[in-house]
Structure formats: structure tokens, C-alpha cells
Design a binder for these strands. Structure first.
Lengths: 140, 140
DNA sequence: GTATTCGTAACTATAATGGTTACAATTATG
DNA sequence: CATAATTGTAACCATTATAGTTACGAATAC
């Protein structure tokens, strides 16, 4: 269904930042993610708007976390991206049909419930958890 | 993120079928959904492959449920569509970076967990529930 | 035999996404 | 102050997913 990589890129970037004491440039993050620095800036811009990271222009600039990795839950990261809903209601059901005319609201409410459970599950993980798991894998 | 309407269309179609004693043609379902009959056939084909509905060609043909509406959970409907995962892992992280080289598996496992919670939430609703809710809305 | 209906391939239009280039603005540093 | 490094952002392109559409063969009821 969805092939949007922004969330994965965001978690990857945050994990990198959590693993580093110094700020990292878009270039460095892009190299680890394997994409273009502009893609990183675009993605990180959303995280910055939500107060998760800070960026600095110019020489010795780059990105750094504004919070402890263990205080950044993945649910918040996900929500920072302002993605559209994972389950989409169809657009123009027939208003003159008893089902078509009334199903949109019902679906919306069910889909919201499902998505909210998904986000709750994401909230069980923090950036610190991801970094720990990654390091554990690295040591195998 | 995802703007795929197949799941919404499927639930809509199944609800319609649940509301009708006779089989419904792709044409009739398409009219309620407001789309083309071919889109309905394509979507319903997945549900048929998973034993949720049956289709019959020819005059007086059409679609009908193979199970009681209260025995069709939305999780099963969702899974019948073989959609890709709602949260996508990014494609080629840098294998030579300690983070990039190990994060894919970690993300996959977290994303699977989140999606599984979403599907579990969908499973709390059946087609009969949706039909009831739609009818309740219609009577307001 | 005819009308109805599904099955499916083929094609098109639209939109989302990511990648890329380019350049202005900002900043550290010598 | 000059230079190099870095972000911000607009603009554009290529790819892909999606839905819509047409067309036609196969199946079926009557």
C-alpha cells in the first residue's frame, strides 16, 4: 500500500544523531541512508518543526537532537511527518444510496481507531530503544 | 501516506452485499461506490480468492457473500487485499555504516508490530458491525 | 439465440514520491 | 573580510501506484 520512506528515514536519522556526540550534516546522514542530502533536509524539516531536532547553517553546522533519545517516542516521530492516514476512505460514494450515503463516517471512525492503535504501538519504542537494538545486531 | 481506496471499497461492497438478500452486480456496487464496474471486479477478485465472496457470470449473475456478515472481520478483509505494509522500510541503507548496516531488520520488526496492532484493531469490527453503524446513521 | 454479466488485458491520466540541480542565505574560521 | 561549509528551498524530472476506461471473450439464464 504505502511505499513512503519518510518515516523510516526519520527514525534512521534520529538514531544516527543519537549515536553521535557531534552534530551531523545532511550529507553525512544522507550517506548512511543512501539518498540525496536534500531528501534528508526535507524530511528533517518536519522533525524540526515539531521540536525534535535543531539545524544550524554554515560551516560546522548540521543537525542535532533537542531531546534525550529515550524521550523521543516513535509515535511522536510518526506524527511529526503529517502523513495522510494509512487507511483511506474512498472519495465520492453515492449519496443517494442508503449504504453509500452513510458509510464514510463509519469507515472514518473505524480507520481512526485502527491507526491510533498502530501509533500507540509505535509509541512503545523510543529512539534509544532503536539504537540499542541496532547496536545489539551490530555485535552479533 | 497511503491513498489506496481498495480497502474502503471492499468494506463498502461487503456491507452492500450484507444488506441485500439477492446477489448484486459489479454495476450496482460500482454505482453505490461511485466508480467503474471494472474497479469493483478487480477489488472483489481478491476477496473471492480468499473465500469471502462468490461471483457468477452471465444473466442474473453477480456477487454474494459466502459467510455471515458477523463472521467477516475487517482484519481478514484487509489481509485479503495483499496490500504492502503500511510502514515501509527504506531501500538501500549504507551497509558500511554501523547504523545503516543494521537498522533495516530493527525497523522491520517494529513496523510489523505496529501493523499487527492495527490489524488487530480492524479485527474488532465485522461487516455486520459496519452495516449496523451505517443503518444507525441512516436513521438519524 | 439473445441479453446479461463477469474476467481480464490494455491503455490513459493523475498524483505521490524520491532524486537531482541550482542558488541564495547563513555561519565558522583564519 | 574572504572563503569554505552548510542549510533552505524552489524547480524540475523519472518512476511508480492508482484509478478509470474501453474492449472483447466466456459464461449463463431465460
Amino acid at each position: 500500500m504505502n511505499a513512503n520512506q519518510r518515516f523510516a528515514i526519520s527514525v534512521h536519522a534520529l538514531t544516527l544523531l543519537a549515536s553521535s556526540s557531534d552534530p551531523l550534516t545532511s550529507e553525512m546522514i544522507a550517506s548512511s541512508v543512501d539518498t540525496n542530502p536534500v531528501v534528508i533536509r526535507r524530511t528533517m524539516a518536519s522533525l524540526r518543526e515539531h521540536g525534535l531536532v535543531e539545524s544550524k547553517s554554515g560551516a560546522k553546522g548540521g543537525w542535532r537532537l533537542l531531546r534525550e533519545p529515550k524521550e523521543i517516542g516513535l509515535c511522536e516521530v510518526y506524527r511529526s511527518l503529517d502523513e495522510v492516514n494509512v487507511l483511506a476512505v474512498h472519495s465520492h460514494p453515492n449519496k443517494h444510496c442508503p449504504i453509500g450515503g452513510n458509510i464514510s463516517g463509519v469507515l472514518r471512525s473505524v480507520f481512526e481507531d485502527a491507526q491510533s492503535e498502530m501509533e500507540k504501538a509505535l509509541g512503545n519504542y523510543t529512539v534509544a530503544d532503536i539504537l540499542n537494538d541496532v547496536r545489539r545486531k551490530a555485535n552479533q
